[in-house]
């Protein structure tokens, strides 16, 4: 009996071997950098000559001396609002697709909205950069039809953020589109029909009945989108490098430039920015998780 139990216990620990590789990778390439990041955020550190503990100085500088950081945060908030607006288009496209009665046409629309998802994201960004070129880009041609000149939108402070938001218009992301479509399909038809019998129009049924029913999926997608947007700076690096005059600077890019931009190498300071962004995403995730529990 005792031996058997011992054997069982042994097996239990032996089973840990199955998850050992996962934990090894998580510790080496996530936990270690995570800790390094937090520790180095309290240092003045350039990886070569300077390595000096300075307490909260990086954070204090970030919020009091750094003139770029508030601009970056402001831009981030603007982009988050834009993201929520753009998300609406995926929901709209999903709903409209399901309203197409002809099954073949419906399938065709699904495939057509889904396929562009396969384009490498960098290709999409570079493509739009080309469309935006003054003189020779697509927008320049369209403006010329109306006798107007298309400004260099990516080089003008006033327009640059709007131009970056417009990328991918009409913003139907294959991922969001599939999930919203399958969520809408799983809504019980009886509920919709009874709403319609009660005299609710198509629009009212959609906003008052269907949308609340698929709100768990929408919340998940929006949370993923928000967290992704807070970290995202790749396209800003590729398109404008934050310019002109920091008009398209976002916190992630600020972090990147502090670390890798020529002559900076302020790794400690960059880590402090990362920690602040991490705390922001953590707060958002916690709020969402709490709301989910309450539901």
């Amino acid at each position: 009996m005792k031996i058997q139990k011992l054997k069982k216990n042994n097996r239990k620990y032996y089973n840990l071997l199955y998850i050992l590789p996962l934990f090894a990778f998580m510790v080496a390439f996530m936990l270690m950098p995570f800790i390094t990041g937090i520790v180095k955020s309290f240092y003045r550190y350039d990886a070569v000559s300077v390595n000096e503990f300075i307490g909260f100085q990086n954070y204090i500088d970030l919020f009091t001396k750094d003139s770029k950081f508030p601009i970056a945060l402001k831009n981030m908030v603007f982009l988050l609002c834009a993201m929520v607006f753009c998300f609406g288009f995926s929901v709209m496209a999903a709903k409209l697709t399901l309203m197409v009665k002809n099954k073949k046409k419906q399938y065709l629309f699904r495939v057509l909205f889904f396929l562009p998802m396969a384009l490498p994201s960098i290709v999409v960004v570079m493509m739009w950069k080309f469309l935006y070129y003054p003189e020779i880009g697509a927008f320049a041609h369209i403006f010329r039809w109306f006798g107007a000149t298309f400004p260099n939108v990516l080089g003008t402070e006033k327009y640059v953020l709007w131009a970056i938001v417009l990328i991918g218009f009409p913003w139907i992301s294959g991922f969001n589109y599939i999930i919203v479509t399958s969520a809408l399909q799983s809504v019980d038809i009886g509920v919709i029909e009874s709403a319609q019998i009660d005299g609710a129009g198509a629009l009212k049924t959609f906003f008052k009945v269907e949308l609340p029913l698929i709100s768990p999926q929408i919340k998940t997608l929006l949370t993923l989108g928000v967290i992704g947007q807070i970290q995202e700076y790749e396209r800003f690096l590729l398109l404008t490098n934050g310019g002109p005059n920091n008009a398209s600077l976002v916190p992630g890019l600020h972090m990147y430039k502090m670390a890798f931009s020529s002559g900076n190498s302020q790794y400690g300071y960059a880590c402090a920015i990362a920690v602040v962004l991490f705390i922001i995403t953590l707060i958002i995730s916690l709020i969402v998780m709490k709301r989910k529990k309450e539901d």
């Binding site: 998580m26 990041g37 967290i227 990147y256 995403t281």
Partner: peptide, 22 residues
């Protein structure tokens, strides 16, 4: 713990990860 690791935004680990890889 695995689920908690999922919440670490990889994009923000860029710099410390680079230091570790160095």
């Amino acid at each position: 713990i695995v689920l908690m690791f999922q919440m670490i935004p990889v994009g923000l680990l860029l710099i410390p990860m680079y230091l570790n890889i160095l």
